[in-house]
Design a protein around this nucleic acid. Structure first.
Length: 569
RNA sequence: CGGGGCGUAGCGCAGCCUGGUAGCGCACCACAAUGGGGUUGUGGGGGUCGGGAGUUCGAAUCUCCCCGCCCCGACCA
């Protein structure tokens, strides 16, 4: 591709709206342009990267025996009513009506459609196992789209759905997808981690997420290298404390704490650590408000909390009026002593002694509070986020926390959809059996952003070779002033293309610095510079985007090096 | 949705407080010089100042309403 025919415009300054590097660089390098909130046009350069991601995904899915199909993006409401999700899915689902006022949605996911296909097409266990996938545009009306293509509303997803006769078959299909996903992310050259996850909206039992590791990731991952445990903090379990609780050493005392609203305030006033305090949160329960008690420095885990029977899902905090009615006090002054509400204690509080907490009176706190004396012994549960240093659930090490970008998610759905929609096949005995389903997603567009988060420097993108929009950028120096150089550059361009390299030929009549800057910005892995100087020496100047300095190679050596690099892809 | 901020040329911004001919840098077009890390000069094109209503002799600027966008919190590939 000739630069002058590629329609690429790069930006020196990115739009102010871009917060994270990948978004800035995608805008600056001309991969995407924004249309509206959460909606992006993929420019020709961006589409090249997208196609690279898709082809790797497609190859590995095909290799795993999955079958590509393509379902409609627009789906009828009736299907969603069959599974109950028309009412459950909420505002994330973009709903619309056709001219006959029939209801539709723009698909955020395709369990209903594929299950409809399955119940029509699959009659016999002999057609199983089977796994269908597609690469397609989805729409989720996110509350807050952000970070460019990392959380856009419209995005491209590879979604796959497996059908099996029983749980053992599903487990097998799931493991195949686990292996395929691992192969995909390895081939894409990304540093990633597989973690246990919550099934959330989609439902089902077992599920794991594939995270690209990056500090800008929206998810927190708890992991332990010692025993291999890794989980999204949403689901990382905490254990009851092992340590014995210290005996009370102080009397219970109610003290004045004017103006204290937060744990920080309290700690400052009393000169104590947050670990010595209790935090009391009032959430909406199934039958009225429920108190959740955590150690002051810990955070409530919404996923865990909303799974408790007495807590309403999705988790919502009680409003000020509800809190006042239930406690006679206000948030910031609450505590479990003499609190007439259902109370959930987190595991960690069980080992606390002589602690401080709100007294359910504005401006008053207790100090020297102890279980068994001032409060009944707590019956504790796992309702908080793990923190670094917590023991692993296996108990063989301690957890660390890293940030990740979720780029893949695999689920064992079981019979949630197949039962609701009557997707059955006959088994060997002629008995109708509900199929066991799995579903498996990869965020194609998100991978592009995630790859940049992980691979960039202050000059621009550094594409992992399998994702690069071009293999090599050919930069002639002042070609317009030298006919021999122009001829040599053209010949080299033709030859590079002939050996199968995807080459960007920077044939613009601009100064070399501009070309170098754009080549670095766009992130093409290999760079070849041809000039009168190198021409005379029969050499080419080569630099890999990751290298600090260029080196001179003779022409054949340079060509061989490039040929090998694409073969190794 | 709640809280905060911003809408002036394709992009980044100034001007607004204190009303009076709409500016700067980048990008774009032309010409010239320059020619190995975003070169310089000269000339040029491009604006419903987010939209509407109001106040005023006069509104980018003041007032009200609406719209859009971004950031911080609860969702997901």
């Amino acid at each position: 591709m000739r630069f002058t025919e590629f329609g690429l415009t790069t930006l020196k300054e990115g739009p102010a709206e871009a917060e994270i590097v990948s978004h800035k660089l995608m805008l600056r390098a001309g991969l995407i342009r924004r249309l509206a909130s959460g909606l992006f046009t993929w420019m020709p350069l961006g589409v090249r990267v997208l196609r690279k991601v898709e082809s790797v995904v497609r190859e590995e899915m095909d290799r795993a025996g999955a079958l590509e199909l393509l379902m409609p993006a627009v789906q009828p409401a009736e299907l969603w009513r069959e599974t109950g999700r028309w009412d459950q899915y909420g505002p994330l689902l973009l709903r619309m009506q056709d001219r006959h006022e029939r209801e539709f949605c723009f698909g955020p996911t395709h369990e209903e459609v594929i299950t409809d296909i399955a119940r029509r097409e699959l009659q016999s266990y002999r057609q199983l196992p089977i796994n269908f996938y597609q690469i397609q545009t989805k729409f989720r009306d996110e509350i807050r789209p952000r970070f460019g293509v990392m959380r856009s509303r419209e995005f491209i997803m590879k979604d796959a759905y497996s059908f099996d006769i029983d749980a053992a078959g599903l487990e097998n299909a799931y493991q195949k997808m686990h292996a395929a996903y691992t192969a995909i992310f390895e081939r894409l050259g990304l540093r990633f981690r597989v973690v246990w996850a919550d099934s959330g909206e989609i439902g089902g039992s077992k599920s794991q997420e594939f995270h690209v590791l990056a500090d800008s990731g929206e998810d927190a991952i708890a992991y332990c290298d010692a025993d291999g445990y890794a989980s999204n903090v949403e689901t990382a379990a905490t254990l009851p404390p092992k340590a014995e609780r210290a005996a009370p050493s102080r009397p219970l005392e109610k003290i004045d704490t004017p103006g204290v609203r937060t744990i920080d305030d309290l700690c400052r006033l009393l000169d104590i650590a947050a670990e010595q305090t209790l935090k009391t949160l009032i959430v909406n329960g199934v039958d009225g408000p429920v108190a959740i008690i955590l150690r002051g420095d810990h955070e409530l885990n919404a996923v865990k909390a909303q799974k408790l029977d007495i807590v309403a899902a999705p988790l919502t905090m009680a409003d000020a009026d509800t809190i006042r009615a239930a406690t006679g006090s206000e948030a910031g002054s609450l505590g479990p002593v003499d609190l007439d509400l259902p109370i959930i204690f987190d595991h960690a509080v069980a080992s606390m002694a002589d602690f401080s907490c709100g007294a359910n009176e504005v401006g008053k706190h207790y100090v020297g509070v102890n279980f068994g004396r001032d409060l009944p012994e707590p019956n504790t549960m796992d309702v908080r986020n793990v923190v670094p240093g917590d023991p692993t659930p296996g108990g063989n090490g301690t957890l660390s926390i890293a940030r990740g970008i979720e780029v893949g998610h695999i689920f064992q759905l079981g019979d949630k959809y197949s039962r609701a929609m009557g997707a059955t096949v006959q088994d060997r005995e002629g008995v109708e059996r509900i199929m066991a389903m799995g579903c498996y997603g990869i965020g194609i567009t998100r991978i592009v952003g995630a790859a940049i988060e992980q691979n960039h420097d202050d000059r621009g993108i550094i594409w992992p070779a399998p994702l690069a929009p071009f293999d090599v950028v050919l930069i002639p120096i002042n070609m317009q002033r030298s006919e021999p150089l122009r001829k040599a550059a053209e010949a080299l361009y033709a030859e590079l293309a002939r050996v199968g390299l995807d080459v960007l030929f920077d044939d613009r009549d601009v100064r070399p610095g501009v070309k170098f800057a754009d080549a670095d910005l766009v992130g093409v892995p290999h760079r070849l510079v041809i000039s009168e100087r190198s021409l005379a020496a029969g050499e080419l100047e080569y630099r890999h985007r990751r290298d600090a300095d260029a080196r001179n190679l003779d022409r054949d050596a340079a060509l061989n090096l490039l040929k090998e690099s694409i073969l190794s892809n």
